[in-house]
């Protein structure tokens, strides 16, 4: 599982270098994200702009990864494209995560605790 990370003192950006987060990738992804975030800054931004396909297994892994962060850490998402965004919308998980258009938007955004509103 290829995860690329860059960190400041406040934010860790984790970019997923795998085109498909499906049943074949879910467990490895969840483990890799836990390792990447361990002991890291409070905001963890998962950049999914490199992911072109995500199914409910991949979604479950993202939710699972969020739940295994340390108590002071929070998982936010960025760069959801096409079908990936659709899966979050259809399952209403877009209401659980703070979702940014891009990772740069996430960096520029203030550390607000309230999920952003979504236009439907």
């Amino acid at each position: 599982m290829e995860l690329e990370t860059r960190a400041t003192s406040e934010v860790l950006i984790v970019s997923v270098g795998e085109a498909r987060l499906d049943a074949a990738a879910a467990v490895r992804f969840k483990d890799a994200l836990r390792e990447a975030a361990e002991g890291g800054p409070p905001r963890v931004i998962l950049d999914l702009s490199g992911v072109e396909f995500l199914d409910s297994s991949g979604l479950g892994a993202v939710v699972g990864a969020m739940k295994q962060l340390q108590p002071e850490q929070r998982l936010e998402l960025a760069g959801l494209r096409g079908t990936v965004a659709k899966v979050f919308r259809l399952t209403r998980m877009d209401r659980v995560f703070r979702i940014h258009h891009t990772a740069d938007d996430a960096l520029a955004a203030e550390d607000a605790a309230v999920p952003q509103a979504h236009a439907h």
């Binding site: 409910s56 479950g60 969020m66 739940k67 399952t91 659980v96």
Partner: peptide, 17 residues
């Protein structure tokens, strides 16, 4: 049917989709 919202569900989305 949607899974219960809390704790955040890690499964049960397949048929919902």
């Amino acid at each position: 049917t949607p899974p219960a919202p809390f704790p955040e569900p890690e499964g049960g989305f397949g048929w919902m989709i």
